[in-house]
Write a protein that binds this DNA or RNA. Structure first.
Lengths: 208, 208
DNA sequence: ATAGTGCTGTTACTTTTTTCACAGTACCTG
DNA sequence: CAGGTACTGTGAAAAAAGTAACAGCACTAT
């Protein structure tokens, strides 16, 4: 099993290869990719081990082949279907951000309780009432959910999503969620992140 | 020096103590707080060691005192000043999310290049032109910045912020940023996070 | 050809983070 | 007031993550 952090970096490497490399650059050395990703060359090579792809000692890694190799690890046969629950400011921002991005991830449904939003297409994606979570998630075989609802309903929404078959959750609500072992959960609370940054920012200035 | 992860969890504990505990609950045991935070009791106790605060073996931790003790570690004398650069959808969402939150972090300025936004107050915060970053950051002694600009200008904006004295950066642009040693950087790319979740979601369903 | 170069893949090591386990403690009970 | 209980604080062990180091390779230059 590939680790958390490695998967994250693989995703980054691929993105760099696909978007930040000249079209006429055929191959790159580990230290070049590592520099772009701001990691050590050793770390990069170690991460790439998990993909099974081998570079050449004189030419480095073929940009195209490496990207394909990473894709082979990260991607499934078809794009993962994603639901987003809670079309507040943050929810809308994320949906529109994800639109126009690469299509390995497809936001196929959004949900809200506000009847002014439900039934309409917002940021290019159909918004359903939250009472239809089970129905739509099951029907569309959605496996990934992004939670951007207020924190007091986040656990309830989560339980319903998990029940309906979701196995990965990206949580932006500032509350820890309880999920079964088999469900992968990533928390992205803005406040906590900012407090952490502020703490280290302060420590950094205090030292001088 | 307290670690990354510990600081994050301390921030979470405090939030739980302040918002998720009955006003008439005077004290809690480690396993109770740990359950709320979805961590192990041992982890919680170890984290609390860094604050120097001690609980009682029969009563547990005083809610009020513990929160105060965590604050003593996390907070500086005055609230940290925060700037947010890039008032697109995501930037506005974050600013309005942070407003009405607790005031240990104060978003004192936002920046954008769009002249329809600059000079106005958006989501309760004054928006300046990006050409004034140095001026305002220096004048207001802003130490923390949130970056929500398009990825192609993120590095340039970062360099200017760092130059103007920012020592902590929360980066939402999907690009790795190069910062000097002394500056703390936290990346929060949405796409990468989603790809990671999708990967583990898929692994989870594949196993069955 | 052959020596030299500069890379890769991988193993061994170091550091960081988490978990375990238990001595010590304050209270409660009869 | 002795024995029991359920907790805390923390050293020690384990696990995870990152770094260093180097053998081996493919090519270049002479």
């Amino acid at each position: 099993m590939i680790s958390d952090k490695t998967v994250e970096r693989l995703s980054l490497y691929r993105w760099l290869l696909e978007t930040k490399v000249d079209k006429d650059t055929v191959s790159l050395f580990s230290h070049q990719i590592a520099a772009m990703a701001c990691v050590s060359p050793a770390q990069l090579r170690r991460d790439l081990m998990t993909t099974g792809y081998s570079g050449s000692s004189t030419r480095g890694y073929s940009v195209k082949e490496l990207a394909g190799s990473i894709a082979g690890v990260l991607d499934g046969n078809e794009p993962a279907k994603v639901a987003l629950i809670g079309m507040g400011n943050l929810g809308r921002a994320i949906v529109s951000f994800l639109r126009g991005r690469r299509s390995r991830l497809k936001v196929v449904a959004t949900f809200d309780t506000d009847s002014r939003k439900t039934g309409r297409v917002i940021s290019g994606c159909r918004c359903y009432g939250q009472n239809r979570i089970e129905e739509i998630v099951t029907r569309e075989q959605i496996s990934v959910a992004v939670i951007t609802v207020p924190s007091d309903v986040a656990q309830k929404v989560t339980d319903r999503l998990v029940n309906a078959g979701v196995t990965g959750i990206l949580n932006y609500a500032p509350v820890p969620l309880r999920v079964p072992e088999r469900v992968y959960l990533e928390n992205r609370d803005v406040t906590t992140a900012l407090e952490k940054v502020a703490y280290f920012a302060r420590k950094s200035t205090e030292k001088e």
